[in-house]
Amino acid sequence: MSDLLQSVIILLGRALFVSMPFLATALAMVLSMVPVNLFGGWVPGPDLGIIAAFFWAVYAPALFPPAAIFSLGIVQDFCSGGPFGFWAIIYLAVYGFTLSQRVFFIGRTVMGVWLGFVAVGGLASIATWLLASTIYNRWIPPGEIFLQAAVTAIVFPLIAPLFMILRRVMTTAPERL
């Protein structure tokens, strides 16, 4: 019995360790809902899910598999009042696109990766606008969507180093990724 319990604890501990990038990002997303009303409340907060999808697709897709991206999108769908599945689709699209272009991002300088994120974020905001307009059956004013993309791009250099620390914690040998 004690052996079984020990095995279960080890299994849970490993699962928790492996899920750390997802759990940390999901917790950050929930905490970012705190009503701080920056700039009078009319400047949207950054979309941490897009940053996570891009970063982990470039640097360590093995640590953030599609299931984690999907779950992150569902968390965002639960948090925001929007239609279910919406952010899951957007995050998976960002993840898939970045993964397909990963060969161009690996080995770039910080500035290069940042510019890459700006491009991917821009495409993601266009996809968000088109998908939202399709769902609501009318043209959504795109201003706030692009404003959020700009805020997210500005915040990316602050968030990415935190993800990088997490990545180092997860594996001290990048070659083993």
């Binding site: 279910f84 599945g85 919406f86 998976l92 993840y95 898939g96 769902i135």
Partner: peptide, 19 residues
């Protein structure tokens, strides 16, 4: 990566179901 495709299909299905 079939799991990627699976989750894309699942997300689309959830969105359609919720709509």
């Amino acid at each position: 990566n079939l799991s990627f495709l699976f989750f894309v299909v699942l997300a689309v299905a959830i969105m359609i179901a919720s709509r």
